[in-house]
Nucleic acid binder design. Structure first.
Lengths: 333, 333
DNA sequence: GGAGCTATGGGTAACGTTGCCCATTATTGG
DNA sequence: CCAATAATGGGCAACGTTACCCATAGCTCC
């Protein structure tokens, strides 16, 4: 079942059929109707691999760092919703938590001739990122980079961290600790959302004249658990913990419950991302909303524009986070 | 940068270079070395679209019904781990919670010439499923179907439900309610894991001489919340709730906490899937382990075999679930 | 020593689609 | 009424890869 069959069945040339398929110039309404009918009658579907050989596959790839983090589905929904009425299809790469897996997956997407990719918080070097974006239209989400070759959609992580610190400080907390995703790479320290968030925490604490207290682990449930244990073991125990992500806060809750501490009675806890789990009744976690759906929608729009004109100037979209206070934060005991 | 460049650079024919790329028969070790070196020096990567046109894309698609359900990442990890040292790459379709989206995504995967697909709990009709499996090598996960054209990997949902019922009954509970994912389609009632699980619940209750008590909503957090509210409003309040999935149990927890009921003091709660959230300290949910990683690994293995020999007899793998008792279940008050 | 192997290498025609070009006919403008 | 232009349709080559074939050379075995 190929375009040749469709053309023959409609009594036109394959070129004509192709034009109809692509909504290209040079096909009369009568011809369009004939070909459309042939397509329906035959149940024809264009073969993406063959299209890919000629340039377009109508496929957009999304690279996500961790399929378990409940924040990413919001972004993905935003992307797919924005592309719903287009000819594009979205395919996701499986989780990749390191540079090597990430390279493998982005390579695979390029090899498959995808028309564009959305990179969510990629960890690759700026050089590689630049090279990739020259190879394929790309939009980078979350990472605070700037380049002439790709667009970015970020959230103001400095402001978001300040929202949490201010909220806790206003409640009366002085010893506010932070659990961050450990970074040493200088580029990551400047660009990755987790590092920027930690930086925002430091700035906000300093602005209030408070001493910073950081546990450096990872943005996972496990990282939250270990980070909380570190913090609780310190001589001056914090009265509030700001976890860099909701999923981190989940691990913190485990550690606190093990230590027999009540939340927010003994200790306050805030997360980041406002995932659906934060809203859960028995958890009811104070968090920061990043509007993942909007992030995804912006990314999809920018990517479509860039696919349309690869040399257009790069855009940086920055969204503002909002605090969502819930029941895990209260004045200190 | 094509295979022609590689061949020229290595001083051999493109046919020879192709043989080396595919580990095909008819290339001497010396030739292999020459070509490999040329590939490395030129940084050549085969173009999947062109390969697709000739038959193979080295791509495996995974269709998952809900990216938010924390059980599915386990399966996906199992699949990717099993395929790690092969030439295959895995791409995921975005969530599809209805038959239409599902059709769109499976069509897209077929159009992109994927070598095979893993369908996780697909909702399409048996007729469509059969047709799809004739078009493309497929493995169906979770759904209790049987066909000559696709393999299946399922968990013994009847046994799993019985594990929960027996556990609760052994603790002394008599009024054990169940929250199921609502189904009316007779095919789904027989084949979908949620329906089979509900059936297992009914059988196990009957075997114990206990009266069934079911709320019929959906396998989501919201469904759990609504289901629990229904159950609590009934004249005879249950002393234990068996939620058909962990994500359902999350919603139940919200409803119970709103109603001022303590778990397991006032009411016991069990989930299903043993997701990472079930293990969380403050939740500590009794659940049933389906070994998602094994499910995924089996699916990947079967799919590879089927890609290798499309007419080989279909296999049905059935795994046994295991109860993981935690702190949400206790004797009735 | 010749028939029948195996091992090795290459030539060539597809796979399904589209971009570029040209041919024909209708339409416009002076 | 003719030249210029627009609208419409089709021919053909090419995208990068591989499956199928054939050609040659060296070997084995009676």
């Amino acid at each position: 079942m190929t375009i040749v069959d469709v053309a023959r069945h409609a009594g036109v040339s394959t070129t004509a059929a192709s034009k109809v398929l692509r909504n290209a110039y040079g096909a009369s309404p009568a011809m369009r109707a004939k070909v459309q009918q042939a397509i329906e009658e035959l149940g024809y579907r264009p073969y993406a691999a063959a299209r890919g050989l000629r340039g377009q596959t109508y496929t957009i790839g999304v690279l996500l760092p961790d399929i378990r983090n409940p924040f990413f589905p919001d972004i993905i929904d935003g992307i797919t919703d924005a592309l719903r009425d287009t000819d594009y299809h979205v395919l996701l790469g499986p989780s990749c938590d390191n540079e090597k897996d990430e390279a493998k997956i982005t390579d695979a997407m390029v090899d498959r001739g995808m028309d564009g990719i959305v990179l969510i918080a990629p960890v690759m070097s700026p050089r590689r990122l630049e090279r990739l974006a020259k190879t394929i239209p790309a939009v980078v989400v979350g990472r605070h980079s700037r380049s002439a070759h790709f667009d970015t959609v970020t959230d103001d992580d400095v402001a978001g961290a300040a929202l949490v610190v201010d909220h806790l400080a206003d409640l009366g907390h002085r010893r506010i600790a932070h659990i961050e995703h450990h970074e040493t790479d200088p580029v990551h320290l400047a660009e990755m959302p987790n590092a920027v968030r930690a930086d925002g925490y430091r700035k906000a604490m300093r602005a209030r004249g408070l001493a910073v207290d950081i546990a450096s682990t990872s943005y996972t449930q496990e990282g939250g658990y270990l980070g909380a244990r570190q913090l609780l073991a310190r001589p001056q125990r914090p009265t509030a913990i700001f976890a860099g992500a909701d999923i981190v806060a989940m691990g913190v809750l485990t550690a606190l419950s093990e230590a027999g501490l009540s939340v927010p009675g003994d200790i306050s806890l805030a997360g980041y991302d406002n995932t659906s789990f934060a809203a859960l009744g028995p958890i009811s976690l104070t968090s920061v909303d990043q509007a993942g759906h909007h992030i995804g929608a912006h990314a999809a729009r920018l990517l479509q524009e860039r696919i349309g004109d690869r040399s257009r100037p790069a855009a940086q979209v920055k969204l503002s986070p909002a605090l969502v206070p819930r029941r895990t934060t209260a004045p200190p005991p």
